[in-house]
């Protein structure tokens, strides 16, 4: 669902993600000082594989919701929702994700997704993401060091 947002004081987050080795696919690694941030970073990492994010400007904002049976399931469905946002109307490429609700008891997420529709010619074509997988999925929560990491293999 498209929602309004203001471009005033709009800040892009710093990059806290990388791509790791896997024979046929690619592993996304996102991290942050909260689990919420690690999830957001992981989502942006996925878009970064589909195109080059420096060519993307923030023009629209869509809100998505995701729900899982456990934390891994929540991460899976969160990324699946984002992939769907790109794969069909509005074909959105996100440069920033902002999780506004992160419920660790019911495993629900609401997220504001900032970006613009993918446009050939404007956005370089990267690799297509076929699906999110549970393969070697890891969610690391180090509450004492305030360090959170997620690892997800996407099928490409």
């Amino acid at each position: 669902m498209e929602v309004e947002f203001s471009k005033d004081n709009f800040l892009l987050p710093e990059m806290k993600y990388e791509y790791l080795d896997h024979t046929a696919d690619v592993q996304l690694h996102g991290w942050g000082t909260s689990l919420k941030e690690a999830f957001e970073q992981c989502g942006v990492a996925m878009f970064g594989y589909m195109t080059e994010l420096e060519y993307v400007s923030v023009e629209q904002c869509f809100e998505i919701e995701a729900k899982g049976d456990d934390l891994e399931g929540l991460l899976f469905h969160f990324l699946d929702e984002l992939l769907f946002l790109f794969s069909a109307e509005p074909y959105l490429v996100c440069k920033k994700l902002e999780i506004t609700k992160f419920d660790m008891e019911t495993f629900e997420i609401s997220c504001r997704c900032y970006g613009e529709p993918f446009e050939l010619g404007k956005h370089p074509q990267g690799t297509e993401v076929k699906a999110i997988t549970y393969s070697a999925m890891q969610i690391v929560q180090d509450t004492t060091a305030n360090h959170y990491e997620v690892f997800v293999i996407i099928d490409i």
């Binding site: 791509y19 790791l20 080795d21 896997h22 024979t23 046929a24 696919d25 690619v26 690799t127 490409i156």
Partner: peptide, 8 residues
């Protein structure tokens, strides 16, 4: 069949 990872 792949031999090298994409990242590699």
């Amino acid at each position: 069949g792949r031999a090298l990872s994409r990242a590699k």
